[in-house]
Amino acid sequence: MRIISIIAAREFRRYYISPIAYAGAAIIFIILGGVFVMNIGFGLPTGSLRPDGRMVLQPLVIILMLVTPAFTMRLLAEEQQEGTLELLLTAPVRDWEVVLGKWLGSFGFLLVILAGTWIFPIIINRFTVPGIDQGALLSAYIGLVALVAALLAIGLFASSLFSNQPAAYLTAVGITLSLWVVGGMRAGSSAFSQAIAYLGILNHYYDNLYQGVIHLTDLIFFASLTALALFLASQVVESRRWR
């Protein structure tokens, strides 16, 4: 636990001096700000939009799918590229502690960003009567946190495969987008297409959590996906020793 927290703290702090982290955060807040202003400026006055705390969450989900891999791509790839992984793995540190620590550090940073996006619902709530549905908002945010945990773990897994960061980024985006589109398979009726559709990462978000309904099954889905990706990442790190 001590080692995990040391590694997590170091990764977390590293984001504050990382240009990519600032660029990613800028993308998130500029686009969400634009969407928000348009909605507030045109949607609400004409009555075509109801005051909803979640109005920026749909664009946020799309952005996160493209931006979190940029936050994770360097986590292991860079250490392999620079040879520092050799330093880390010859210290009395277990492979999975390195993986878990790095994931936790990135998760911490994304929590800060998600907390920042809460500003938009706060503003809406302030300026509308009777305000927004706080329950639905909370549930949607819980789902968002679970989704981000899984996206980061997938990104970290991709980063473990390469010493080249762009390759890690594209691989992570590829996996994430695949997990998104297979959700469309639920239009099919066979058991097979239903089984594949179960992997649809955004269905698990939009079906219930986004609607304000917290189903344990959805949270378990995200937790399992996270655990699996982290497990695979530490297997890959471990396999480097055996090659």
């Binding site: 080692i3 040391i6 590694i7 170091r10 590293r14 001096i17 620079e82 040879g83 520092t84 050799e86 330093l87 880390l88 010859t90 210290a91 009395p92 540190v93």
Partner: peptide, 23 residues
């Protein structure tokens, strides 16, 4: 190691503090 493993964005002291706390 043969290629000296350093983290360029850490100062010498921070680098040693990181490794020393792991150890």
């Amino acid at each position: 190691p043969e290629t000296v493993p350093i983290y360029p964005e850490l100062s010498a002291r921070e680098y040693l503090r990181f490794m020393g706390s792991l150890r």
